[in-house]
Computed example of a mutant assay.
Amino acid sequence: MQKGIRLNDGHVTYLGLLAKKDGTRRGCLSKKSSDNTKWHAKWFALLQNMLFYFENESSSRPSGLYLLEGCICDRAPSPKPSQSAKESLEKQYYFTVSFTHENQKALELRTEDVKDCDEWVAAISHASYRNLANEHETLMQKYLHLLQIVETEKTVAKQLRQQIEDGEIEIERLKSEISGHLKDNEKINTSPATTPTDDDSEIKKIKKVQSFLRGWICRRKWKTIIQDYIRSPHAESMRKRNQVVFSMLDSEAEYVQQLHILVNNFLRPLRMAASSKKPPITHDDVSSIFLNSETIMFLHQIFYQGLKARIPTCFDILLPMLNIYQEFVRNHQYSLQILAHCKQNRDFDKLLKAV
Rank of each mutant, 00 (worst) to 15 (best):
V12S: 04
L17P: 07
L18P: 05
K20T: 03
D22L: 11
T24D: 13
K32A: 08
K38I: 11
W39D: 01
K42F: 00
L51T: 07
E57H: 03
S60M: 07
C71P: 10
R75Y: 03
S78W: 06
P79D: 02
S84L: 12
Y94E: 00
F95R: 01
T96G: 09
V97W: 05
E102F: 09
E108M: 08
E108S: 13
T111K: 00
W120N: 06
W120R: 01
Y129G: 11
R130V: 15
E135A: 13
Q141V: 10
L144M: 14
H145P: 05
H145M: 12
E151K: 15
V156R: 10
I164C: 03
G167P: 02
E172V: 10
E177G: 13
S191Q: 12
T194I: 15
P196C: 04
T197I: 13
K204A: 13
K205E: 14
R220P: 01
Y229A: 05
E236S: 02
M238S: 15
V245S: 05
V256E: 00
Q258C: 06
I261D: 08
A273K: 04
S276R: 01
D284M: 05
V286H: 02
I296G: 05
M297P: 09
Q305M: 05
I311Q: 08
N331I: 05
Y334M: 12
K343Y: 13
K343I: 11
D347C: 11
D347N: 13
L352T: 00
V355N: 07
